[in-house]
């Protein structure tokens, strides 16, 4: 039974970390306030906007409606964990190349959610991308560039794969 701060072992972006926090903290709060990972954004706080989306065991979930205490033993990936070996993720490159971000507030949620999509479907149709991103709101772009960026990233990733890189 836990009421005061407890020490919890989390695994975030491939690293094991020990953090102490009170039971009522959400995963979003612990990521930002206790781990300094401010890439994940506070939006509606009520599950409506998707800007707080992170990957838990590879699946996109809303960190604003998850208790951090429930994350022991799970593999958490935030937008900070997308770049590998100093290279941006193809989704990040495609978002930048196509201008799929304006204010950028929604971008971390879109990136994490799209990453999970491309991992289970390397060549998604436009409708499948729309469906996967249905829970992510963007107030700036009008969505078209975001959908195109996901398609571009998917195409580049398929190409890299066939080239065996």
């Amino acid at each position: 039974m836990r009421k005061r701060k407890t020490q919890v072992a989390l695994r975030v972006n491939g690293e094991d970390v020990e953090v102490a926090f009170v039971p009522h903290k959400t995963l979003l709060e612990v990521l930002r306030e206790d781990l300094g990972l401010t890439g994940t954004k506070h939006g509606c706080e009520l599950g409506e906007c998707g800007t707080c989306a992170v990957l838990v065991d590879g699946k996109p979930v809303l960190s604003c409606l998850a208790l951090a205490l429930d994350m022991e033993g799970r593999e958490i990936t935030t937008v900070e964990g997308l770049a590998q070996n100093g290279r941006l993720h193809p989704l990040q490159e495609a978002f930048a190349d196509l201008g799929a971000a304006q204010c950028g507030y929604c971008t971390p949620g879109f990136l994490c959610t799209s990453k999970a999509l491309l991992e289970r479907n390397a060549d998604p149709a436009r409708e499948e991308i729309e469906e996967a991103l249905a829970g992510n709101l963007c107030r700036c772009t009008g969505y078209l560039k975001i959908l195109e960026a996901v398609e571009l990233a998917a195409a580049r990733m398929r190409q890299e794969k066939t080239r065996g890189r």
Binding site: A53, P60, L62, L65, A66, T113, G135
Partner: peptide
């Protein structure tokens, strides 16, 4: 129901 992220949990 709801959104893909919500349906995951």
């Amino acid at each position: 129901a709801a959104t893909p992220q919500i349906r995951n949990v």
